[in-house]
């Protein structure tokens, strides 16, 4: 008798998903992709939930070019969050995103707690929106501190936003600090329902001709396979710090085995980002490969993956490792 296919169904804060593979915010524009691929994108949608590109209160054009730099095994980008602003998003984009065949998560970023509140109050009441992801990699204009780098700021922000909606609030953690787990724990203490990580790793490519920074914005963020081991370390650390909070793990996932590694590191769900640029159906292939990788290991559901249990962080993961 042949063994059954693994059950990939997953849950995110009460939202039932067919499988644990989402897109990373800002790496797939479903509206543009529909223009390019037409109806077939809807018939064969590659993700189990869709995370929008980050929106801000006011419209943004984004950063001056060049915006991209191909790195070894990855990509540095400095796109600058181009978007139509909250009103434009609600009027023009949301109706189109609501037509996607999967739950919708809207990513928002504010430069103050007031802006975050305006975004959450604008987006949360819309029934098309299943959850909200908070992009906290931006300075608070009042304190000058990057919210996602400061546990105190992160907790205070979540306490304020928690009162505004019962919908799941997901905090997207930045990897650009010594202790992402402290920020993750603070966000959860403030009321976050889930955490997602990692965002891009701060990076500055140098133009070999001018010997000055290549990107129009000078610095950007590295993504792709080059960052995957960093992401796995941070997922383990955050998973250990908030054992009962759902985690969406991402950072360089290119294969089903990569996805399985994230789930084993403590993620409940995974997101595919830069790999989508190489192939718009990368997530579909990764899903097939994950199924195969689980079957080969006699793992028949996501909950059977060791993940959160059966291990503890080694002291070297907490204290840091001796170099060399």
């Amino acid at each position: 008798m042949s063994e059954p296919n693994p059950d990939l169904r997953a849950m995110l804060c009460g939202i039932r998903l067919d499988d644990p593979i989402l897109n990373a915010s800002g790496t797939f524009d479903a509206i543009a992709a529909k223009r390019v691929f037409g109806r077939r994108l809807i018939d064969r949608f590659p993700f189990s939930a869709f995370v929008s590109k980050t929106i801000t209160v006011a419209p943004r054009h984004g950063n001056p070019p060049p915006r991209l730099w191909e790195a070894s095994g990855g990509l540095v980008n400095s796109i600058g969050l181009p978007n139509k602003g909250l009103d434009g998003f609600l009027a023009e984009d949301l109706p189109q995103l609501a037509a996607l065949p999967v739950p919708l998560i809207v990513s928002v970023m504010g430069s103050s707690p007031e802006e975050f509140a305006e975004l959450v109050e604008g987006v949360a009441p819309r029934e098309e929106v299943a959850a909200i992801e908070l992009n906290v990699s931006c300075p608070n204009v009042h304190s000058g501190l990057i919210v996602g780098e400061q546990p105190v700021e992160a907790e205070a922000l979540l306490v304020g936003l928690r009162e505004l909606t019962a919908k799941p609030l997901i905090v997207k953690l930045t990897p650009n600090l010594a202790d992402p787990a402290a920020v993750g724990a603070a966000a959860v203490a403030g009321g976050a329902d889930a955490l997602s990580l990692i965002n891009t790793v701060k990076a500055t490519p140098i133009d070999p001709e001018t010997l000055r920074p290549w990107l129009g914005n000078q610095s950007g963020g590295l993504s792709g396979p080059a960052v995957m081991p960093i992401a796995l370390a941070q997922v383990r650390a955050v998973a250990a710090a908030v054992p009962s909070t759902p985690i969406i793990g991402m950072g360089g996932i290119e294969s089903g085995l990569d996805a399985l590694m994230f789930l084993a590191a403590g993620a409940d769900l995974v997101a595919v980002g830069t790999a989508c640029f190489r192939d718009p159906l990368a997530a579909e292939r990764i899903r097939q490969e994950l199924t195969k990788a689980m079957r080969e290991r006699s793992i028949f559901s996501i909950s059977e993956i060791p993940g959160r249990t059966g291990w503890a962080l080694a002291s070297t993961e907490i204290e840091g490792q001796l170099e060399g």
Partner: peptide, 28 residues
């Protein structure tokens, strides 16, 4: 032609400045 990451509007990398401000995505 500009550097392009994806070709289908996903990466927003291929920005070309518009005459009336802002950018278009060259790939889409």
């Amino acid at each position: 032609e500009t550097p392009m990451g994806c070709g289908f509007g996903a990466c927003f990398g291929c920005a070309v400045p518009l005459a009336d401000g802002g950018y278009l995505r060259l790939c889409v």
